[in-house]
């Protein structure tokens, strides 16, 4: 099946719209539940939409020390790459639009692109705060990449061991929910891997406790400190789309279920149900790994971020991987 070009374009536009709207919705949802957990009322759910509209109405200020072209290019690049990630991820039971060309490894690499754009923007701002923020963002990126890779490899390995062709493509993961392939030991292993991925998510999204690159109290917004107006709006949208992407990745890897198939609905109503079910799933993932985590602890120092990922999460991830492998071996015997 080779999808024709018009299909891809329409699909891409739809996915971009979906990513942006749902991303902003997730941000609004996060603000409300975080507020409720802190015994506050919080803003209305439409607040992120209002904020973005207002930011787009404002002027871009380029600081004197900045490198203008890089400074202005970074936000566009960040948003575009974040949307591209979505094109490779299955959304609500649909096969990813660009499923042909890419697989999990590609997604893993694509996930770093918005962060790299942010780093470039930070260095280009020419402010000491942004520079420190950009350095920290790079360190954070290197830190969480390792546990993320472990999770992805563990799942692909399991699929390969179960005799499924093309284990790295999201389509095969989608078609074979991972929980069905493992025994009790493997289930424990997978649960550990799920937790690891849920803890990688806040770092990917620069949220507390891993928001060291932005660190409001010491760096005053760090990497984003010089951004304003439309550029800042683009970065906010990126943040929303990235939230959708990370949550979709978690859902795609661990919960690739379809409610419509389960209750036996097909056609348009089935698709609608599936999309709604998918939104509910990613909202749940965002709630657990973004909202709850960010309100319940203090910000880490950058060296603590590294040790959390390289030591604790790497060990946890490897344990999970070993458990899944052991399970496979026991299963074979």
């Amino acid at each position: 099946m080779t999808p024709d070009i018009p299909f891809i374009i329409i699909g891409a536009v739809l996915v971009a719209l979906f990513g942006i709207v749902i991303g902003l919705f997730l941000m609004g949802f996060d603000r409300i539940v975080a507020a409720r957990m802190q015994a506050r009322i919080g803003p209305p759910i439409t607040q992120p939409f209002t904020d973005i509209r207002k930011l787009f109405a404002k002027e871009n200020v380029v600081p004197e020390n900045a490198i203008p072209w890089m400074f202005n290019l970074a936000p566009v690049l960040a948003l575009a790459s974040a949307i591209v990630i979505l094109l490779y991820l299955p959304i609500g039971g649909f096969t990813p639009i660009l499923s042909e060309g890419g697989d999990l490894i590609l997604v893993m690499y694509l996930l770093t692109v918005p962060a790299l754009a942010l780093v470039a923007g930070g260095f280009a701002s020419g402010s000491p705060y942004a520079t420190v923020g950009a350095q920290r963002e790079m360190v954070t990126m290197i830190a969480y990449e390792f546990p993320l890779a472990i999770v992805i490899i563990a799942i692909a390995w399991k699929l390969a061991a179960a005799g499924i062709a093309l284990p790295f493509t999201l389509a095969s993961i989608q078609a074979n929910p991972i929980w069905g392939l493992v025994g009790p030991l493997g289930t424990i292993g997978l649960l550990i891997l799920l937790v690891v991925l849920l803890i990688v998510t806040p770092a990917e999204l620069s949220r507390i406790p891993f928001d060291t690159p932005e660190a409001e109290t010491e760096l005053a917004g760090g990497i984003l400190v010089e951004y304003s107006g439309k550029n800042l709006a683009l970065f906010s949208l990126t943040q929303g789309v990235k939230t959708v992407a990370m949550a979709s990745l978690v859902v795609a890897l661990f919960f690739p279920y379809s409610l419509a198939a389960f209750i036996g609905l097909a056609g348009i109503s089935g698709a609608v149900i599936d999309i709604l079910f998918f939104i509910a799933l990613i909202t749940l993932v965002a709630f657990v790994s973004v909202s709850v985590v960010r309100v319940s602890m203090a910000r880490f120092r950058i060296n603590q971020v590294v040790s959390v990922y390289w030591v604790y999460l790497a060990i946890a991830g490897l344990t999970g991987l070993l458990l899944v492998m052991a399970d496979q071996i026991i299963g074979v015997i």
């Binding site: 802190q38 109290t217 319940s296 203090a298 910000r299």
Partner: peptide, 13 residues
Amino acid sequence: AAHELGFDSLFYL
């Protein structure tokens, strides 16, 4: 102090 640590929930409390 809680806010300086990035722990806003405790600050509100």
